[in-house]
Write a protein that binds this DNA or RNA. Sequence first.
DNA 1: GTAAAAAGTAAAATATATATTACAATGGAA
DNA 2: TTCCATTGTAATATATATTTTACTTTTTAC
Lengths: 70, 70
Amino acid sequence: MKDFTVRNKIKIARIEKGGLTQGEFAKLVGVTRQTMNLIEAQKYNPTIRVCLLISKYLERPLDELFWIED
Amino acid sequence: MKDFTVRNKIKIARIEKGGLTQGEFAKLVGVTRQTMNLIEAQKYNPTIRVCLLISKYLERPLDELFWIED
DNA sequence: GTAAAAAGTAAAATATATATTACAATGGAA
DNA sequence: TTCCATTGTAATATATATTTTACTTTTTAC
């Protein structure tokens, strides 16, 4: 199967959201800072569960935060 | 952390999409039929990558297909 | 410029998504 | 009813998301 790459704009959205640090945001979502770091750096392919929580706390739709690059 | 449950309406959307069998759809998306079966049965928490492909082939936004129940 | 906070990163351990194979249950068409 | 396609499910194996701990680099405030 093709090697679609998943992209996200979490980091930008988090900063735009105002003041949230990576660690604070990770805690909100319920993952470790390291996990959030890797997700933001697009080195992970997070589960929909984590993505939904990210979407919730950033108040942005999933479709705006995540997309495929083929 | 709270135990949010992830829900999805993939099976309904797949059938509404017309004629696609679970196996055919799984192949389209690039996972096995068993994996798609477990995802549809809400026993898995799929990766955003798989969800994006599902969204693409069902022509439905992520936010319409997946949500959290708390 | 210095100190503290935040962010990047890395290695090892654990949890779980996904694959593989196989078989049972269900449903619809003949 | 019988046959065949589809779906449900289970066991084992593998890949990888996530955690934990710890250290380095970058950024920000003073």
